[in-house]
């Protein structure tokens, strides 16, 4: 089990979690690992929660049971909290700190908890919690949409996975849209530096 890593991604439709999943998967392959990934399609794309998972190593199951994620990458703080049961005391959690308001809150039918309250519940219960303002760094890189690559930068910095920085950069250069390569590289660097 020691050479296997289970990484869970969670976010909201439109945040680019699936592209980030793909970047991590390809980077892991480039670094010489076997990879399995799993995605949720369909209903989830209409503003709902989008979850994906990546297994690095010799695992055969493409999904993660509760308490078994080595890393949780949350693109939205409420969704990080909602998915936290995927983690154990050994997990590394990387979360964007900027909320995307659920519709129920926008119309006043629910309350969005204080982000710091959510993080304060998570921090003492996991090995490490890294939080960052991914959209701001994405904007700084040249496009707010590159916030997903900012998150990948923070993931690389955490060194939670056996994937060198170069493998991520190579993947961004060869597997993301040409038009956005420079922005994505910058976003990766900013995410790497932020945590």
């Amino acid at each position: 089990m020691d050479n296997n890593y289970r990484v869970c991604f969670t976010g909201v439709g439109g945040q680019g979690t699936l592209l980030a999943t793909m970047v991590l998967a390809e980077a892991a392959i480039f670094a010489g690992h076997n990879v399995l990934a799993s995605e949720v399609h369909g209903m989830a794309q209409r503003g709902g929660v989008v979850e994906s998972s990546i297994m690095i190593g010799d695992l055969k199951s493409p999904i993660i049971s509760d308490g078994e994620a080595d890393v949780l990458v949350g693109f939205e703080p409420l969704e990080t909290y909602r998915a936290i049961q995927k983690c154990s005391a050994d997990s590394v959690v990387i979360s964007n700190c900027v909320p995307v308001m659920p519709f129920s809150v926008a119309i006043g039918k629910g309350t969005y908890p204080e982000v710091e309250t959510l993080f304060a519940r998570i921090r003492p219960r996991v090995r490490q919690l890294v939080t960052l303002d991914a959209p701001a760094l994405g904007r700084k890189a040249g496009a707010v949409l590159s916030a997903n690559v900012v998150m990948i930068g923070a993931l690389a910095k955490s060194a939670a996975l056996p994937i060198p920085t170069e493998a991520f950069e190579h993947t961004i250069r060869t597997k993301t849209k040409k038009k956005f390569v420079e922005i994505n590289l910058k976003a990766f660097e900013l995410g790497f530096g932020a945590s």
Partner: peptide, 15 residues
Amino acid sequence: PNKDGEKIQLPMRPP
């Protein structure tokens, strides 16, 4: 996360 504390009510996010 709710151990030793009041349960935080999470707003739902349906599609």
